[in-house]
Write a protein that binds this DNA or RNA. Structure first.
Length: 589
RNA sequence: GCUCCCGUAGCUCAGCCGGAUAGAGCGACUCCCUUCUAAGGAGUAGGCCGCAGGUUCAAGUCCUGCCGGGAGCGCCA
């Protein structure tokens, strides 16, 4: 049973096609769109215009003919109370208010399951993926939040979701760490992640002065790859203490292991499966991958290194360095091989939520997979997020120009705490609430932008808790709850407008609610959680306008029922939407 | 030099597969709590959608060139 939006789009497409067939016109795809202005109706179609153009006839007259046919269709008349022709040849449809009210009832009835779907498809999302021995950066934060939102979206749409935290726990960087630990004779188990980062930076500075040390680092990584015990011990300690820190952050942010609280039916249907293999895991598989690449003639030896060349303008990629060690590409190839050959990971779609600076790498990787004939390139998607900069310029650990994620989280929670003025809220509740609000604000602030944009990190903007922000939506939700609580139990079933003419504000809300599922789908399939954020913000805005202009509790009985239903549906939708974004909706604030 | 991404209001960003009068938030200025949560609402000011061509009935959206910003380009990941 599709949701109203989908149902209507299909109905329009089918009946327009029928009409043009009746009129003996050429068949063509029908695109249904939403006019920007409410006066133009809820949905519009420009098929008549295009057909008339092709035939060289008058578009308005043709549109009127088609509308004439449409109006012979009973089902169409059931759904729309006006179908109008507008220049230069649009056909505009206005959905019956009763139908929109039915959908509001659906929201209230289905609760957290409204908008959810079932599917047999599978997706694996590779996100967060921080580097061991380095602090968690805002870039990884971005990947984590966007990736988690996408995972939630797909889960809600019924897909089986695997969330893979592809830890950066392998590579020459560990050669540097090992070489540095050995040089300074440090006890790794006593170090913090910050210490590891410091010695990494320090050693790299030494390399600049003395390039020979680079060889020492490379050799150290080679030892690690061969499984030398001493090197492996340093490495595993670094991994252990890094993971401890990351887990702390994940828990605080309720990501990587946190799924929104959906109704049991949805939740048990397909829980997100979280895995953390990490790059090092693929070490064992790499040999066969290299072998296969050689055998298939995809990779060739060049100046001692194993190189893959591409036909087009893309620069070549390296599979094996001249000293025999592997590269990022080798591991990523092995990763895909493993995923494709492991039942619980094999998916219809693989999403990589990784920074845009790695775009070339992924293009090379996907092309190589295609050349090896493993799977279709179209199954592999790189959702490239833009770079986050500071007003002073690019972030740089060396120059001390970074945003510390922990500090960021603490600051925003503090600011939220200071804003709580509601006297009904106890001290203990205040503590919990400031976390929910602060973290919600942080997530929202990231997810409201399209993943691709580069943006400038501005503390004022990032810590803003007003306007287009997480707390705005949470506040609207709490406000709805407050109204509903004061309404006492009231039945919101069998809604009907009857003699009542709904206000512009009320209609505005109705005309948004039925589009929820569509927005969610496009957010998922276009890898853009920000589309849902924009939708929720608009819904909240419309609700707040309505709330400020029309009394709810004090209105006349039938009207009161409709207004309460709108309040209830709005609240439900905000809760579901925020949940999908990984943001909680407190009942009061 | 080559490749990719970006350029929309003072700032930060939306703008779906081309569609009807380009939208928000922040900041500025005015108002609105004896109605349900003012983290809210109403309003004013603010635009050559980087520039120039092209395609189209229709271009912020598609194509080409240029300018400006960012990222990447075999031994980093």
């Amino acid at each position: 049973m599709p949701y109203l939006h989908e149902e209507i789009v299909q109905l329009i497409q089918k009946s327009i096609k029928q009409s043009i067939k009746q009129l003996k016109l050429a068949d063509m795809p029908v695109r249904v769109e939403h006019p920007k202005m409410a006066e133009h109706g809820d949905l519009a179609v420009n098929t008549a215009f295009i057909l008339a153009k092709r035939m060289g006839t008058n578009p308005i007259k043709l549109a009127e003919k088609i509308v004439g046919e449409l109006k012979k269709n009973d089902l169409i008349n059931q759904y729309f109370d006006s179908i109008a022709v507008a220049p230069p040849g649009f056909i505009n449809f206005r959905i019956k208010t009763e139908k929109l009210l039915n959908e509001v009832e659906q929201v209230i009835k289905l609760k957290e399951a409204y908008g959810a779907e079932k599917s047999t498809k599978k997706v694996l999302i590779d996100y967060s993926s921080p580097n061991i021995a380095k602090r968690f950066s805002v870039g990884h934060l971005r990947s984590t939040l966007i990736g988690q939102a996408l995972a939630n979206f797909y889960q809600f749409l019924g897909w089986r979701v695997v969330a893979d935290n592809h830890l950066g726990d392998w590579g020459t960087q560990f050669g540097v760490i090992i070489a540095a630990v050995e040089k300074y004779k440090l006890d790794v188990s006593q170090l913090t992640i910050l210490d590891l980062e410091k010695i990494y930076v320090q050693y790299n500075k030494l390399i600049e002065k003395n390039p020979k040390l680079k060889e020492t680092a490379r050799a150290a990584f080679a030892r690690l790859e061969k499984g030398e015990a001493k090197a492996k011990k340093i490495w595993s300690e670094a991994v252990r203490l890094s993971l401890k820190e990351f887990d702390g952050l994940y828990q605080k942010l309720e990501v990587m292991q946190f799924s929104p609280i959906f109704s049991p039916e949805v939740q048990k249907y397909n829980p997100i499966k979280y895995v953390t293999y990490g790059e090092s895991f693929y070490e064992k598989i790499m040999i066969q991958v290299i072998k296969e690449a050689k055998q298939k003639g995809v990779a060739k030896l060049d100046a001692g290194a194993l190189i893959i060349r591409f036909d087009d303008k893309m620069p070549p990629a390296m599979l094996l360095k001249s000293n025999g060690t592997t590269t990022y590409l080798t591991r990523d190839l092995a990763t895909i091989w493993f995923r494709e050959n492991t039942a619980e990971l094999k998916s219809d779609l693989y999403i990589y939520e990784v920074g845009a600076e790695q775009s070339l790498h992924f293009r090379q990787l996907f092309k190589t997979v295609e050349m090896l004939g493993w799977c279709q390139k179209s199954k592999l998607v790189h959702v490239a997020h833009g770079m986050i900069r500071l007003p002073e310029g690019k972030m740089s650990t060396r120059k001390g120009r970074t945003v510390n994620v922990e500090t960021f989280v603490d600051k925003i929670i503090n600011r939220s705490r200071n804003l709580i003025t509601n006297p009904e809220i106890t001290e203990a509740e205040k503590e919990k609430l400031s976390r929910v609000v602060g973290i919600g604000a942080l997530k929202y602030n990231e997810l409201k932008r399209g993943p691709a944009v580069n943006y400038v990190f501005d503390w004022e903007e990032a810590l803003n808790l007003e306007g287009n922000s997480g707390p705005y939506l949470q506040y609207t939700f709490a406000r709805c709850q407050s109204v509903l609580n004061k309404a006492k139990p009231v039945s919101l079933e069998s809604l009907t407008a009857g003699q009542i003419t709904l206000s512009r504000e009320e209609l505005g809300i109705l005309r948004l609610i039925y589009q929820f599922n569509k927005v969610l789908r496009s957010g998922a399939f276009q890898y853009a959680p920000n589309t849902l954020v924009g939708f929720l913000f608009e819904l909240a805005q419309r609700y707040n306008t309505f709330y400020n202009n029309q009394p709810i509790l004090k209105s006349e009985a039938q009207q009161r029922k409709i207004r309460l239903a709108l309040t209830s549906a709005t609240a439900e939708m905000i809760k579901i939407g925020l949940g999908l974004l990984g943001i909680r909706a407190p009942n009061r604030m």
